[in-house]
């Protein structure tokens, strides 16, 4: 297992280099120089801030030197400071001479996005598993047809549109749920459970919206996986030796159908992180997606580059965890990995 882990960690190095190359390349896509107005750089920006940008990315050096320096800074997780007037560090907190700590932008936004993604993964599994199982057990009958219809609509519905409709329905027509932000104004006066309740109310819609397409995808995946497994010989054997239907379905079939789900959840991470842009900007949730969106609107390059890199690194980490979980859950893979 350790050897497998080391091997996987080693594989991440060329991946990270690839990611750094792509993000470096994107920065140079801008016509001319990113400090020029053609690149959408604020025309009112002073010559001083332009100079700062040039210094940050060493734009006066040859390209290869620029890349080397960029790689070096990535290695140190140093993404510089935001161009916004608060000039906060992009990634992690810094201390100035007087010992004042300035929190990093990603440092504050990341936990929020992770929380939303973990909650929507939980929601996806809680709803999609039963849907997929029911669908497979009633193949081509009414429940299966209804669930399949739901899946197709779930794939096709634009998340931001559903978000608008739900905002209108629950926030404007009825006053059930708050429609933006993370906390109510009176959050600080609430007790412990009051605070949790308040946060959950604010998170309900964003979590649902970010989980929506995953919900459809995983239901379909579980259904097809179950159908495949249910036709295997060992299921016939289990039935033949007189096991109850529940034991057959849940102990023998479902557990095997779920194995590939681990990998799928790992692969879903970039979609979830990227998808947070729409949910968070609609509901004004101060997570990574909103931070990124605002940075794109303001052409805040250090923040854009920082989030792009950190988001990709997180994806790699997620895939690694998924692979490890798979090896842990499936003895066949585990043995193959060890040898």
């Amino acid at each position: 297992m350790i050897r497998y882990l080391l091997k996987r960690l080693f594989w991440m190095i060329p991946m990270l280099i690839g990611i750094s190359l792509i993000s470096f390349f994107i920065m140079h896509l801008a016509p001319g120089d990113i400090t020029t107005t053609e690149a959408g750089f604020n025309p009112k920006a002073s010559e001083e801030s332009r100079q700062k940008l040039r210094e940050l990315y060493h734009l006066d050096e040859p390209v290869i030197v620029q890349y080397g320096l960029w790689l070096e800074r990535m290695g140190k997780l140093d993404f510089g400071a935001s161009f916004a007037s608060h000039q906060r560090p992009v990634f992690w907190e810094t201390k100035d001479d007087q010992g004042n700590v300035t929190k990093g932008l990603i440092q504050e936004a990341l936990p929020i996005t992770l929380l939303i993604n973990v909650l929507s993964l939980g929601l996806i599994i809680a709803i999609a598993l039963p849907l997929g199982v029911v669908s497979s057990l009633t193949q081509n009958q009414l429940p299966d047809r209804a669930i399949t219809l739901f899946v197709f609509i779930g794939f096709a519905i634009p998340g931001f549109w559903l978000a608008l409709l739900l905002m209108y329905w629950t926030g404007v027509v009825h006053d059930w749920l708050p429609i933006s932000g993370l906390h109510s104004l009176h959050y600080d006066q609430l007790g412990f459970f009051g605070k949790i309740g308040d946060s959950l109310k604010h998170l309900a819609l964003p979590v649902f919206i970010s989980g929506l397409s995953g919900l459809a995808g995983i239901s379909l995946f579980v259904r097809n996986g179950m159908l495949e497994v249910l036709h295997q010989d060992y299921i016939t054997t289990a039935r033949a030796k007189g096991l109850g239907e529940n034991t057959v379905v849940y102990r023998h079939a479902l557990r095997n159908a779920l194995l590939p789900l681990i990998t799928l959840l790992g692969l879903a991470i970039p979609g979830l992180i990227g998808g947070s842009v729409i949910a968070e900007s609609i509901f004004a949730i101060p997570g990574m997606g909103k931070l990124f969106y605002d940075a794109v609107l303001m052409r805040d390059f250090p923040v854009i580059m920082g989030i792009l890199t950190i988001g990709s690194a997180l994806t790699l980490l997620g895939n690694l965890l998924a692979d490890l979980a798979y090896a842990w859950a499936d003895p066949r893979v585990r043995r193959g990995v060890m040898s």
């Binding site: 991946m15 690839g18 994107i26 896509l29 801008a30 016509p31 970039p270 990227g274 794109v296």
Partner: peptide, 24 residues
């Protein structure tokens, strides 16, 4: 295939938005 892996590990929507931020 390594190129594919690298591209797949960058959150797509971030990538698209980043490119658009640098272009118009």
């Amino acid at each position: 295939m390594r190129m594919v892996d690298v591209m797949l590990s960058i959150p797509t929507f971030f990538l698209i938005l980043a490119v658009i931020a640098f272009l118009t």
